[in-house]
Amino acid sequence: MSMYYAGILSDIGILLLGALSVYIILATGQLSLGNAGFMGIGAYITSWLTVEAGLPITVALVIAALVSGAIGVAVGFPALRLKGIYLAMATLGFGEVVRSFLLNFAAMGGPEGFHGMHHISTGYIWTWAVSVLVLVMLIEASPIWLEIRAVRDDETAAGLVGLNATEIKVGAFGCGAAVAAIAGGLFAHHHVYIEPGNFSFERSVDLVLAVILGGSTVASGALAGAVMLVILPEYLRFLAEWRFAAFGALLIAMLLVRRQGLLDRALLRFAWRGSRA
């Protein structure tokens, strides 16, 4: 496999994990525009653990995921009292707080960034990406997922059948933060260099975009979205400096024609039947 394709595949795998982190939170009806912040936390913790503490990458990733998940729960409790656009603003603020913290965090290079990580293979990235994707898809078939859908749909009615909406929302936020941290850790060890600018608002938007493009109602939508978001700009290269404008136009067209994104449950059911016929 050429370096070029390996790079693209790795980018897709990392974006898939980032998109899944948004998807898990979105499933409970909360939009997070700050997941790049959790990616940043994961990237810096993982890198410090492998470079300074000499831990193996897998152990470092698990620790980073746990720490980031705990931060997610701690941030989630107050933040999830907010709804809709206000929550989105609060999470956006959180992402910026993380970025400015990293800028001032001299111990790990501040604005100059941090390096010294060992490069990881595309296969390793995809092992994580596929594992998390399969895990989310399994959970989608579970009773917990029904509860998540109930909370997203009507929090009041969910409470009145005995569901603890706060627990479910905060739990999802924590899980999302943990998955984002894994994406961040893999990002750091793929690029072997990180700086605070890697985890800015634009990246948070990328993660949300991948989910919205690929399909925000099924986990596999995150995969479709990650592929589209990485590949499309590559295919549009022949348009030179117009390619991002063309990409934007495609995005708008997609949202006008298919608001739920490329994949949804109906389409998957249709494809499943077709493949068996």
Binding site: R149, A150, D153
Partner: peptide
């Protein structure tokens, strides 16, 4: 709950 079947309502 929108987009839930009758059966799913009884499980949730």
């Amino acid at each position: 709950f929108s987009d839930m079947t009758v059966w799913e309502h009884l499980l949730v």
